[in-house]
């Protein structure tokens, strides 16, 4: 019973971090129609941003979350014009070309990180790292708790932005029908640029949290790309509320497979279920996404 409860808590806690990555990812898909293959590399680079700031300034890596956010918002704003150029082009299969572009970008970023920093794993410690809380026989590392609550906080903030602000209204309008949104006077190009920048910023921050919980290495990106795809497909691509359920599910699948089947099978089962969900329910388990 204790083991079951512990596994449940582990799964939920890590799901909170995945939430941050996929929230932005799915939002960007909804507005731009773009599936960003480089999502895992933003996580990786975010992790390294946290690592190097921590390494040279010696402050707690969690304090650099806002800095990382700003850095990656700027990076996202710089990348967006290239995506926009591809999206406005006239060539055949534009969205597929954007996908290939982000694939090239991810190869470039991974190669650059590997060349600069090598294959080594690097760890960074936070104030919360070696501590834990025990509640009713369930043991919770503090850093994971902090990461989870940060994830929840970000989710609430994004939800507030989407449903309670004028900007959020225009984001939802563009996601629903870009042409009509433009007729209503929404500057769709600006909305898309801001959403992409926001997504990059959120993903970079998630990288810092993941880096503190585990380690950072230039090769870590691919795993988070597939996690982002998994959650987004499960949630239904473009359907933001579904992300809540899907991120927790991924955390739970990983935790339960690791405990009851063996951690070697964890990724296999994630990949296999991604494939099967794509085939059986391409609009997500809630049937609300775009196919």
């Amino acid at each position: 019973m204790d083991l079951l409860l512990q596994t449940l808590v582990n799964g939920i806690l890590i799901g909170g971090v995945y939430l941050i990555i996929t929230l932005g990812f799915n939002l960007a898909f909804g507005v731009l129609g773009v599936i960003d293959f480089a999502v895992g590399e933003w996580v990786m680079l975010g992790g390294f941003t946290g690592y190097w700031l921590n390494h040279y300034l010696g402050l707690d890596p969690l304090l650099f979350l806002p800095v990382t956010f700003v850095v990656f918002v700027i990076v996202g704003a710089l990348v967006y014009p290239m995506l926009a150029r591809l999206l406005k082009g006239r060539q055949h299969a534009r969205l597929l070309m954007v996908f290939v572009f982000t694939f090239g970008l991810s190869t470039l970023l991974k190669g650059g990180a590997l060349t600069a920093w090598g294959f080594n794993q690097r760890a960074m410690d936070s104030f919360f790292s070696a501590r834990s809380v025990e509640l009713a026989g369930v043991y919770m590392p503090q850093i994971r708790l902090v990461a989870f609550f940060f994830g929840v906080l970000i989710t609430v903030a994004v939800a507030w932005m989407l449903y309670r602000t004028r900007f959020g209204l225009s984001v939802r309008a563009v996601a629903q029908d870009e042409g009509k949104a433009r007729l209503m006077g929404v500057n769709t190009n600006r909305v898309a640029a801001l959403v992409y920048a926001l997504y990059a910023g959120l993903t970079g921050m998630a990288g810092v949290l993941i880096g503190v919980i585990y380690t950072v290495t230039p090769q870590m990106g691919v795993q988070y790309t597939i996690f982002a795809f998994f959650i987004a497909v499960l949630a239904g691509l473009g359907y933001v509320p579904g992300v809540l359920l899907a991120a927790l599910l991924l955390g739970l699948i990983q935790a339960f497979v690791a405990v009851y089947i063996g951690s070697a099978y964890s990724l296999l089962i994630v990949f296999l279920s991604l494939y099967l969900i794509l085939l059986v329910a391409p609009r997500g388990i809630l049937n609300r996404g775009r196919a």
Binding site: M82, R85, L86, M97, V100, F101, F103, G104, L105, S106, T107, L108, L109, K110, G111, G112, L114, T115
Partner: peptide
Amino acid sequence: AYLIFLGFLTCVVVL
């Protein structure tokens, strides 16, 4: 470094 070239060239060619 090969990955840098591959990735960079792909981005440029796609654009």
